[in-house]
Structures are given as structure tokens and as C-alpha cells.
Design a protein around this nucleic acid. Structure first.
Lengths: 117, 117
DNA sequence: TGTCATGTGTTGTATATACTACACATTTGG
DNA sequence: CCAAATGTGTAGTATATACAACACATGACA
């Protein structure tokens, strides 16, 4: 979780090597937050920002939103809404899949995608 | 969401018909909150309590924890942890299943439970 | 060599969350 | 009938969340 900030910084500096528009200040401005705030987040001085701000950061830095949210210790509110509509079913499913290896989960995902329910 | 309180009240009063220990005060005491607080929650005057308190209420009233949490507008933190460990996979899965009918999701749950991965 | 941009330190704040403490009128059971 | 239990109104609080505003020293670059 503290590594959220470090990840942001590494990602931003990587982008910066080929594009000077990825200074902390410019990113902060495009994302709509204060540079000092972003600075402290990148350095782990402050906790990750809100879901909305994290999503804008993900967009800006070309990261997967769900992955970045996870690094921020959060779960997308739209996923939460999906679970809340059918809590028993999805709670069971997730707990069943908790221990399952990646390939097993992926096969389920594919099966559902191609399924003709 | 406002109906969280009403649900609690109806459930408690139902239990009370056969067991006088289910007065608001006694339930509040066993759950470890102030009676006035529970009163306001049941009447929808205050928002649902924290996850921890909601879980104790579920135990006390014999309700499914995940369902009651959902009524409280929350998702169990252990489910969130499961998602955060493999965010892309579970985000994909949940969004795939969002529109799927109950029986389709249930068949996936069963398949996974009986699966020999 | 000066100026513009950069990263960061300090301070403050608005809002939400999750309750407690106490008092009071009403109801109920023995 | 009265003492205990019940539900509720009012007021207040501790903590967390999610930032903004401003100032300042350093570095780049033209």
C-alpha cells in the first residue's frame, strides 16, 4: 500500500524520459490536484487519494484502473454495486475462488464470456 | 438503503413476538451500542453503522452478514481483499457476470465448488 | 546569469464517519 | 399503582478522509 506512491513515481518518471510533459507539476495540473499533494502521495507521505482522483491518475499514466485502485487499497465502486445487488451469490463465488489458481479463475472468466446463458 | 433500518426493526420485532429479550435496548446492549443510536438507525434517522457493528447486528438477529452489509450499502472487507489481490481477474469476472441471470451465476458457483482445479 | 519550472515543507480546512452521554415521556408487568 | 423497562430527542465528540494554499530552495536552460 505504501508502494502505491512509489509505483506512481516510477511510472511517471518512466514516461517522462520520453515526454517532458510528465513532470510532477504538469501531471498534477492535468489530474486536477495540487502539486504538493501529488508529491506527498508519490513519496508515501500521504495515503492514496480518493477513488475519483486515483482513476484520473490511472488515465493520465496509462494504468489499469482496477489495478491502480487495488494498489490504493480500494475496490471500484461499480464492482461493489454489482456485489451489493446479489450479495449472497457473489460472496459465495468470490470465497470459492479465493484459493483457486489464476488459470482456474481465468477459465471461468472465459467460460462465462463465451457462455450462452 | 434507507430500508436498512426498517428491515432491522421488522426483524427485531418479529423475533420479539416469541422472545422478550429482543427489545431495542437489550439488543443494543448485546450488540454493544447505545439504545438511542440503534433507535435512530432503525428509524432511518441515521445511516447504517460500521461494518463491524453491522456484522454484530447480523449475528444477533440471525441474518446473513453479506446480505445485511449489502443493505447497509457496504461490501465485506474480506471480499474486497480477495478482489484486491487479483484485481484484473475479478473485475473482469464480476463485470461479465453483472448481466447474467441468477441461475447462470449459481451454476458457475457450483461448478467452481465441485471443480478439481 | 537570471528566470522559469520543479519538487517539497508547512499549515489549515471542510466534510464525513461513527458513534456516546444524558434526559425524558410513555408503556408495561407484577 | 408504581417501579422498572422501553423507545426516543438533543447535544456533543473523536477520528478519518481528502484535499487546498502558500512559500521556498534547488535546478535547468537559454
Amino acid at each position: 500500500m505504501t508502494y502505491f506512491g512509489g509505483h506512481l513515481r516510477r511510472r511517471r518518471e518512466a514516461l517522462r524520459k520520453t515526454d517532458r510533459r510528465y513532470s510532477l507539476r504538469q501531471v498534477a495540473q492535468r489530474v486536477g490536484i495540487e502539486p504538493a499533494y501529488l508529491s506527498k502521495i508519490e513519496r508515501g507521505d500521504l495515503r492514496p487519494p480518493s477513488e475519483a482522483t486515483t482513476l484520473r491518475l490511472a488515465r493520465e499514466l496509462g494504468e489499469d484502473p482496477d489495478v491502480l485502485l487495488a494498489m490504493a487499497g480500494k475496490v471500484s465502486s461499480d464492482l461493489q454495486a454489482i456485489i451489493r445487488k446479489r450479495p449472497k451469490m457473489f460472496a459465495d463465488l468470490l470465497r470459492q475462488l479465493k484459493q483457486a489458481p489464476d488459470h482456474a479463475v481465468l477459465s471461468v472468466v472465459r467460460e462465462v464470456r463465451d457462455g450462452d446463458w
